[in-house]
Simulated scan of single mutants.
Amino acid sequence: MNRNPFCRVCYQIINMVIKLYGVDLSPPVRAAMMAFEIFNVPFEKIEVNLVANEHKTPEYLKKNPLHSVPVLEDGDFILHDSHAILAYLADVYGKDDSWYPKDVKKRALVNQKLFFDTSILFPRLRNVTYSIVMEGKKTIEQKLLDDIEQAYGFFEAFLSQTTYLAGDHVTIADVAALANMTTLENLLPIDEKKYPKITAWLTKGKNTPYCKKRNEPGANQLDEIVKKAIS
């Protein structure tokens, strides 16, 4: 049930500010931060140094046995996985249900694209960035780039049917995908002639205030690390 602005303020005062554990390099963390911005929810960002294995400490594993980021801590409620976090924030803090519809069929379409993001976009991105950032790899295999190209084809097909991923209105599925696509395009530039729908969608997304504030800095930082590693 959505809370009105007064109730949201009361809730935040009583339960203190929500904590978000993560690092800006991570696209899923950036997606969560964009959602906090969209729904105007104050949060405390707690940096988790993945290189130093801070995500594998006993304290962190109690919050998330999968030792992944991000993790949301809302009072005594702990939630990991960026897609679950996006849905939670939309349901609790959204002023309406446009970002995550209550209508069963509309919500199913959003969920479908969230699953596309978590099963196709993010794994194909992580296959490249994890090996470079965490394992020190200096090259990108052509097969991994071919996998990304295939994902672009899927994405273009979706956008050929609707303006946004799950319909003609932006939803949390677009937010999740935006965080990944702004890094994927740095790994494999998007041919605007081949993928005009993606190009238009990405341009709109990158120009939003929430993307510029919460996604762009981390995406640029990760791009610099990758380019330096493979140069």
Rank of each mutant, 00 (worst) to 15 (best):
I85H: 03
E135K: 04
T203E: 15
F43A: 07
E135Y: 09
V29D: 02
A177V: 05
E37L: 04
L125S: 05
D74T: 05
M16P: 05
E44M: 09
K213N: 14
S119I: 08
D174V: 07
I132Y: 04
L165G: 01
I38M: 09
V170I: 15
M16L: 11
I85G: 02
S98E: 09
L145Q: 13
M34D: 02
I120N: 07
V71T: 13
Y164S: 08
L61R: 01
I190N: 13
E216N: 06
P65E: 00
S68I: 03
V69S: 08
D91A: 14
Y11G: 05
P189S: 13
H83P: 04
K197L: 12
L50S: 05
I46V: 12
K106M: 11
T162G: 01
N4S: 11
T203V: 03
A173N: 08
I38L: 03
K106D: 15
H67S: 13
S160K: 15
K63Q: 06
L145P: 01
A177E: 11
P196D: 04
V226Y: 08
L145R: 05
N53Y: 02
K106W: 03
I78W: 06
P27S: 10
I18K: 00
A157F: 06
V9C: 03
L178Q: 01
Y93W: 15
T199C: 07
M33T: 12
T199N: 09
Y164H: 09
Q12D: 10
G153C: 09
K204Y: 11
R107G: 06
M1G: 12
V71W: 09
Q112E: 12
G218Y: 03
H83E: 04
H169A: 14
V69Q: 08
E192V: 02
M181L: 12
F154V: 13
Y210V: 08
N111P: 09
F154L: 09
P65L: 02
C211V: 15
E37F: 14
I18V: 15
T57I: 02
D81G: 04
I120Y: 08
E141L: 01
P123H: 13
A166P: 12
P58W: 14
V48Y: 10
R3L: 14
K227M: 04
V92N: 06
L72Q: 02
V175Y: 05
E73C: 14
C10E: 08
L50W: 07
P5T: 05
L145H: 11
T118Y: 01
A52W: 10
I148S: 02
E135G: 00
Q112H: 06
Q161H: 11
A200M: 11
A108S: 10
N111M: 11
P123T: 01
V92H: 14
D74F: 06
D91H: 12
G205L: 06
Q221Y: 13
N40L: 03
I85A: 04
T182Q: 13
D168C: 15
L159V: 04
E135W: 03
L202S: 11
A176K: 10
D146Y: 04
K143P: 08
V48R: 15
W99L: 05
N215E: 11
A32F: 07
I140V: 15
N127G: 14
E54F: 06
K95Y: 07
D146H: 08
K227S: 09
M33V: 02
K228C: 01
T129A: 04
V128H: 10
Y210R: 06
R124Q: 12
